[in-house]
């Protein structure tokens, strides 16, 4: 049983996004679970940085996957899947952000913010772990404070480790434009994070 499970996991790992999408489109709904496994954490952090609080981020994450599943038929096989899923996710996040702009605030409940982040350092020094998660929350808070056009690029480039080429595809902007936004964002992030820590 364990061997079978191992084989299954290995197969899942080997399958490309396009193969999984193809399977899902052919009616294998369970295949879609692998898409969720692959993108859930990245999209959650994207949502968290974008919307600023765990409740909205969780709701948005759920809605993003519902939209992705529903409109999977519009994805053209042969294209890259990652830009497509991020475009779908960002469109949804922008829609929510603009709709709720007045009510959205970065979570004042810092503890809740910290609790919502993954804890994958089992066995690590509790103090180090706490500081690491404190860093994560500070980073997300700083990204959330950026204006929307910078926040999108920073979220994709830094939090999701995408290349500027990929980002330019997703946002339909030139690479120089992306680099210019990253330049502006770095300057602001440095100020925000320095001020945040030192109170300057």
């Amino acid at each position: 049983m364990l061997i079978l499970l191992g084989v299954r996991l290995k197969q899942n790992h080997k399958q490309s996004d396009l193969e999984i999408v193809n399977k899902t489109l052919q009616g294998d709904t369970a295949a879609f679970k692998i898409i969720i496994e692959r993108y859930r954490d990245y999209l959650y952090r994207t949502a968290l940085a974008f919307l600023g609080n765990p409740e909205d981020a969780e709701d948005a994450l759920q809605e993003i996957f519902i939209n992705v599943y529903r409109y999977l038929g519009t994805f053209r096989l042969g294209m890259e899947f990652r830009p497509w899923i991020y475009t779908t996710a960002l469109n949804h996040l922008k829609k929510i952000y603009r709709k709720k702009k007045k009510n959205l605030k970065f979570s004042a409940r810092e503890n809740e913010m910290l609790e919502s982040l993954p804890d994958n350092s089992k066995g690590a020094d509790p103090q180090i772990l706490a500081e690491k998660r404190d860093t994560e929350a500070a980073v997300l808070r700083a990204v959330h404070l950026l204006q929307e056009d910078l926040r999108v690029v920073v979220t994709l480039y830094y939090l999701n480790e995408m290349s500027t080429r990929e980002i330019s595809e997703i946002l339909n902007l030139g690479i120089e434009n992306i680099k210019s936004r990253l330049y502006r964002a770095r300057k602001i992030l440095k100020k925000i994070l320095k001020k945040n820590k030192t109170g300057l």
Binding site: D41, L117, P118, N120, I128, T135, L159
Partner: peptide, 13 residues
């Protein structure tokens, strides 16, 4: 690692 941050695994809701 407290200085470097993100590990994209673990359990989130």
């Amino acid at each position: 690692q407290k200085y470097t941050g993100f590990h994209l695994t673990g359990s989130i809701n």
